[in-house]
Design a protein around this nucleic acid. Structure first.
Lengths: 219, 219
DNA sequence: CAAGGATGTATCAAAATTGTATCAAAATGC
DNA sequence: GCATTTTGATACAATTTTGATACATCCTTG
């Protein structure tokens, strides 16, 4: 799920944004001044920020500095008049900007390209303290990279894509090894063990006796 | 010198563009219909194209298809009315668009970000104690120049432009050697080794077993 | 609860992949 | 044309991955 933070003091505009972005499948959080934004950014992670430069409380540009440090892409909203602001906004690290009043379709389009540019739409799978960047063949546990072999990685991705779903041994074997499951082989069990060990999965990677395996949060 | 192709049938607008872009130090070429544009693209190379979608002769979208094939970034110009066109333009591969009538300052800003995104502007890449001046084919380690051969340099630039991103062997090979990766070739490995040695990259240039390589700060 | 099948675990060797050294061909400069 | 540099090939070493085996342990069923 892609998370967008809307930093805008005019409630009408903020709600308009939220409505449309939510409808497009994004997960939105609204804040109405710069301090709130800074606080929230401390504790939560966002994929994109939509920022009105004319904010009460904190100066928009100071906030930009902080956001740049976090490396989160920003689309700036700015009043029609001030071209100077626009230039400043761009050079201070914004990914894009829109001039108020703006067309909603245009906003959605810009959100889309900014996200594409940041490869955020490419999927990062999450499960508890694990996150798996499929594109980059990276598995992170609590933010730290864990070295996985290609087979282990494939298996993990398969499991993560099917959280809370029981995967049959035969199904897994065919997906990963591409051939039918040789009944006596212990290969699959082995790789499951290796994943459990490397990622400390314990019984969050459940064994379904005689059937297969399932990844689910410990209850 | 950065070369921009302006494809616009209204002479007044075309000239306005040329005037401002030239003043900003870009090298501009003007054409006034799609056929001319296609012909010129056959024989010359450009860094950016500014394209009016409403063209006589060739359909703008057909031209887009061709441009996408050339991998040249495009900023689309479109009449205020047609929002549909804008959407189509974006999805057919444009990097950005502007609605006529537009502010010249805004255009310059967009040209700037699109070029930056495409790494066409003069840039010095940095990674730890390395900095690479792409224009001048110079690689510096702790400020001191390191002699790299052309192939080594190309490879380094590719890696530096994709820090923290896993580059697949096939992808690297195609980028640098321009042909499909011959499965048994050890050439790529060799050049990686040479870079590691010359630049003392150790395992900051990570091997992703069976997948490729990735440049990232040691954790 | 005991038997028997299924899974967990440790160890090891084969296979695959990558690292390294050396050398010759190709390109470049003088 | 010759010397030098760059590039890629080859052979072999080192490393990593993978699957097999053996045995321990666990689960299910009667």
């Amino acid at each position: 799920m892609i998370r967008i933070l809307i930093v805008e003091d005019e409630h009408a505009i903020s709600d308009l944004l939220r409505l449309n972005l939510t409808r497009s499948g994004y997960c939105c959080t609204q804040v109405f001044d710069g301090m709130e934004a800074a606080d929230l950014l401390e504790e939560q992670n966002f994929d994109l920020i939509i920022l009105d430069l004319m904010l009460p409380g904190l100066n928009g540009f100071e906030l930009m500095e902080y956001i740049r440090f976090l490396k989160i892409p920003v689309i700036i909203l700015t009043a029609k008049s001030s071209l100077d602001d626009r230039m400043k906004g761009l050079t201070s690290g914004a990914e894009d900007y829109m001039i108020k009043p703006f067309e909603v379709v245009e906003l959605l389009a810009r959100v889309q390209i900014v996200l594409r540019r940041y490869h955020k739409e490419k999927c990062v799978l999450k499960f508890g303290d694990l996150s798996v960047d499929v594109e980059n063949q990276k598995a992170l546990k609590q933010g730290k990279e864990v070295d996985l072999t290609p087979k282990e990685f494939e298996l993990l991705v398969l499991l993560m894509r099917n959280q809370n779903i029981t995967l049959f041994r035969e199904k897994i074997y065919e997906e990963i090894w591409g051939v039918e499951y040789p009944a006596e082989s212990r290969t699959l069990d082995l790789h499951i063990q290796r994943l459990r060990k490397k990622l400390d999965l314990g019984d969050r990677l459940k064994t379904i006796f005689k059937v297969g395996y399932r990844l689910e949060e410990a209850s």
